[in-house]
Simulated scan of single mutants.
Amino acid sequence: MEGIDAYLTSKEISPEIKKLLQDTKDYLLQGIFDVFDAKRYLTISFALLIQHGKQLNESEKQAVKSFKNRRFVKNIITIIVICLGTYLIIRFIR
């Protein structure tokens, strides 16, 4: 949520991306989205904007990267923990 607030106050972000971020923040506050839903919603929405020809400036590109990177880092950590846990379980069973 702090990341969304930081980008909402920026003057370099276009109105359509600000609306997207504000909608996401509202959904979080209303309890419609959890953090994972919000990141997924933003990632898909950014991808659709880019696919429909929206040219992003540097601040907008940074916003897209900041929401994407967190998800991938968490997924990598989760995969490592699952693999390590599976290895330890198999090792102790033998």
Rank of each mutant, 00 (worst) to 15 (best):
M1S: 07
M1W: 00
G3Q: 03
G3I: 07
G3L: 11
I4R: 12
I4S: 01
D5E: 09
D5A: 06
A6C: 04
A6L: 10
T9G: 15
T9N: 15
T9H: 13
S10N: 10
S10T: 01
E12F: 07
E12L: 11
I13R: 08
P15W: 05
E16M: 10
I17K: 13
K18D: 03
K18R: 12
K19E: 15
K19I: 03
L20A: 00
L20E: 01
L20D: 03
L21P: 08
L21V: 08
Q22K: 10
Q22G: 01
Q22T: 00
D23K: 14
D23T: 14
T24M: 00
T24E: 00
T24F: 08
T24A: 06
K25S: 04
K25C: 01
K25W: 00
D26T: 13
Y27Q: 04
Y27H: 13
Y27S: 04
Y27P: 00
L29H: 11
I32R: 04
F33P: 13
F33A: 02
D34Y: 05
D34G: 06
V35P: 00
V35L: 07
F36S: 12
D37A: 14
D37L: 02
D37N: 12
D37G: 14
A38K: 06
A38M: 01
A38P: 07
A38W: 01
A38S: 11
K39E: 03
K39Y: 10
R40S: 09
R40C: 02
Y41W: 12
Y41P: 09
Y41V: 02
L42S: 07
L42C: 07
T43D: 02
I44E: 05
I44Y: 08
F46P: 12
F46N: 01
L48Y: 08
L48M: 11
L48W: 04
L49Q: 05
I50R: 08
Q51Y: 14
G53L: 04
G53Y: 00
K54L: 09
K54D: 00
Q55E: 10
Q55C: 02
L56K: 14
L56Q: 06
N57D: 07
E58S: 08
E58I: 03
E60Y: 03
K61A: 06
K61S: 10
K61Y: 01
Q62L: 09
Q62F: 01
Q62T: 14
A63L: 15
A63G: 11
A63E: 03
V64C: 04
V64Q: 10
V64M: 13
V64P: 02
K65Y: 14
K65A: 13
S66I: 14
F67H: 03
K68C: 06
K68M: 15
K68A: 13
R70T: 11
R71K: 14
F72K: 11
F72S: 09
F72P: 07
F72G: 01
K74L: 09
N75V: 03
N75E: 08
N75M: 07
I76C: 04
T78Y: 08
T78M: 08
T78Q: 10
I79V: 12
I79R: 10
I79A: 12
I80K: 06
I80M: 13
V81I: 14
I82G: 00
C83Y: 05
G85F: 01
G85K: 07
T86F: 13
T86I: 12
T86K: 06
Y87L: 10
I89T: 12
I89G: 13
I90E: 05
R91A: 15
F92A: 08
F92C: 03
R94N: 15
R94E: 15
R94L: 15
